[in-house]
Design a protein around this nucleic acid. Structure first.
Lengths: 157, 157
DNA sequence: ATTGAAAGCCTCTGGCG
DNA sequence: CGCCAGAGGCTTTCAAT
């Protein structure tokens, strides 16, 4: 991973539909070189995918909440995580330090659906309690931090 | 927004680099029709962008934390949010219900950087206290929930 | 690792149903 | 709205450096 790879990654984080030809013009390589580099970055698991981002409320997901999951004494974290993953309304799932085992981000159409989803979360084996923080507004989200890619890493990644 | 638009959106959430020709084959339209529909979805603010997703630790962002921001009595939420947005390591920022005004997701290279960032968060005018939850592992993140797009909405989006 | 060439596919516009 | 047609651009592979 050299500076050129980092520039390519930064460009693709900003515009995931950038063409290889465009990327090549941006970083000063031929399209075929960019093509090969991107393929290697994908194969190496650096680039994990490309996704359109959507305004959630326009697709009927206007309610967001952050839910802390307190486990029972005997809970198996991996089993709980798997069940959390089985619910499509759970968009993200982080295992965390503290009394809670996980914090998940939930997106649903309405507060009624939120109530329903929280019920399902509490019914998961190994879940003792949930603590819900309702999101009032999303100021920004998933902003790519490219500073670490633009500046050469001081000590190494 | 009809069922075809929803199918196109679902496909682009899964693969943001899908070509119009591919999308057309998937949904049963010509490439030019898909091209026009996608253009309208972008113009309408339904599709807000396309982004490569990257394994954060491979680009030197191995430490993630969720930080609750407790405001002072006199804090102006919008001013605080703006200052939070000025820090590139703050990837997401949600205004929330509860004693905290915001919950932010922070990504930094090391725990030393986290300490440094938390210091800067606390020094923002209007921030009284921070409460930090360190992420131990990301089980999954930003999963597109396409169920709401696949199933026709019962009452309407 | 990078490049240029070449065939095929895709984009994107304009015009027509 | 959707389709076709077409010129131009892009992708992808390959051999050479």
């Amino acid at each position: 991973m050299d500076a050129l790879d980092r520039k390519i990654i930064a460009a693709l984080r900003l515009n995931g539909r950038a063409t290889y030809a465009e990327l090549g013009r941006t970083v000063g390589l031929s399209a075929s070189s960019v093509h090969e580099r991107v393929g290697k970055l994908e194969a190496a698991g650096v680039i994990t995918g490309y996704h359109a981002t959507v305004n959630p409320s326009t697709v009927g997901l206007g309610v967001t909440a952050l839910v802390g999951i307190q486990p029972t004494d005997t809970a198996e974290d991996n089993d709980v995580a798997e069940e959390l993953g089985a619910l499509p309304e759970v968009e993200s799932c982080y295992a965390v330090a503290g009394d809670e085992a996980f914090v998940v981000k939930v997106r649903v159409p309405t507060v009624d659906d939120l109530e329903h989803t929280l019920g399902r979360l509490r019914r998961i084996a190994g879940v003792a309690r949930t603590r819900t923080t309702v999101v009032l507004s999303t100021r920004f989200e998933g902003r790519p931090n490219n500073t670490v890619l633009e500046d050469p890493p001081p000590t190494g990644a």
